[in-house]
Simulated assay, not measured.
Amino acid sequence: MKKAIYSVLLFSLLSLLFVSCQKDMEKTILVKPASIQGFSASVTDILLNPDNKTQTVVTFKFEEPSYGTDVVPSYSLQFDIPSDTTGPDAWSKAVVVRLTGNAVERSFNGADLNALLVNQLNMKPGTKADLAVRLVSEILKTTGNPSSVAPVYSTITIAVTPFEDIVIYPALVVKGGNSWITPPPGERAPGYVLTSAGFNSKYEGYLNLPDADGWGGDAFQLVSSTDQKVYGWGTSATTIAEGGGNLWLTPSPVYMKVNVDLSTNAISYTPASFSISGDHNSWSTTETPMTYDVTAGVLKATGVSLTAGKAFAFIGNNSWDLSYKVDEDDKLVFAGPPNWGGNNIVVPATGTYTIILDLSRGAGNYTYSLTEE
């Protein structure tokens, strides 16, 4: 009899334990929401201008989706050109802005939104265009990687008109080492800066190393304009490290293109010489060389005879792989691989010109000029 009672009690306890565990398991099962409700923009037609740079111009809001249990999703906003939101590479070029904590709204002032549109999405200032904005809700593991629960999306489209602004790009500024005396990094002096035109981890600029130490090499460090971190020698001549000693490069003096990627701590140096290739010399990549003016910090060619309506481009190292042309707004742009972009520069009037190529202010700030002699 006692044995039977014990068996009943044991069965009851096990049943209760099973039910309890089952409930606990049910509580921890994540259920993907069907959608994200209420995703909207406070303004759907935004005209940006210098007067609203410091003002809030738009706020994106949404309702917190339910996953069936207490979790804190990771939210982000993706901004892209509508034509880049379809096909196999849909949204791959989007600019991603992550929301902090469990915030269910994100506001932008005019300056930040304008920089996102013009500098990161390459939208044309003064032209009204559609902007696709996608909200992403996802559950991340403690490692930061996505979980097995698929992300949930909600997309809206708004109209935006960006404006032409004076852009101050993030920069890495040269700080000379040993005998090389350079301007204070805070001055961002031309000829001593690498800039991030995409506001990301990649920096580019042209430097002329002066052989200040007198034995064929130069030493320097790079100072960040955003957080004043100092980068120097990494584990080799092609790497950098925060707090590292002097970067060392030889031979010098030499004019070169310098690229840095802070996400991989990589640095590369490409010695560069430039020439002008165009109709005037049957598109020769060597016939019209440019010389580097050390005092002015620019590349120059004088006595160049050009004909109105004809065209030319700037060629580096006798190859179109390093070349510069102009965009629709006559701004100098990289014309090499992989995109091979830009348009040839059209000569405004027949004459003999001094042509200047100024690469001293970092990527995004390259300019040229034609002065009739």
Rank of each mutant, 00 (worst) to 15 (best):
G336H: 12
G101M: 01
G144Y: 08
T354R: 12
E372I: 14
V254W: 04
D70L: 10
T288N: 08
N318L: 03
T350I: 06
L140S: 12
F18C: 02
N281M: 06
S15D: 03
S92I: 01
G336D: 15
T28C: 01
A308I: 05
D89L: 05
S66I: 02
P190Q: 06
L322D: 15
T288E: 14
I36E: 07
Y6G: 01
L47N: 12
V43Y: 09
I267K: 01
P88G: 01
K128W: 07
A349S: 15
K331H: 14
G191P: 08
Y75N: 09
T288R: 07
K32Q: 14
L30Q: 14
K27E: 14
L322V: 14
N200G: 10
P65S: 08
L306M: 12
D89G: 00
N318C: 03
S12N: 04
T157Q: 15
D211N: 15
G177V: 02
D211G: 00
S7F: 12
I267E: 06
L113R: 04
T195C: 02
V97H: 00
M25S: 05
V58P: 11
K32A: 03
G316M: 06
G244Q: 05
Q55T: 11
Y368N: 14
P183L: 02
Y269G: 03
N208D: 14
F39T: 10
F312A: 00
I139H: 08
F39Y: 13
G110C: 02
L16R: 00
V304D: 14
N52A: 02
S42L: 04
T195P: 06
D330I: 06
D165T: 09
Y67M: 09
G198C: 07
A272D: 13
K331F: 13
T157M: 13
I355D: 09
N259I: 07
Q22Y: 13
L135V: 05
V133E: 04
T157F: 07
S15I: 04
I46N: 14
W283M: 03
G342H: 14
G126M: 04
I29L: 13
S137R: 07
P271G: 01
L194Q: 01
A171R: 13
G126N: 03
S147Q: 13
T28F: 01
S83C: 01
K23E: 12
N49W: 08
I29R: 15
V333K: 15
P289T: 11
L209V: 02
N102R: 01
S148M: 11
G101C: 00
G341R: 11
G364M: 08
I139D: 13
T69H: 11
T367R: 11
T100I: 14
L357P: 13
Y75K: 09
N265M: 11
F79N: 05
G303I: 08
F60N: 08
Q22F: 09
L306F: 08
M25C: 02
V326H: 05
Y67G: 11
A41T: 08
S196D: 06
I181H: 10
K202R: 15
A237P: 05
D130C: 06
P337V: 00
L13P: 06
N265R: 03
V118T: 07
G110S: 03
T238Y: 10
S196Y: 01
L77K: 11
Y324W: 15
N208K: 10
G68K: 03
V72F: 06
G244L: 03
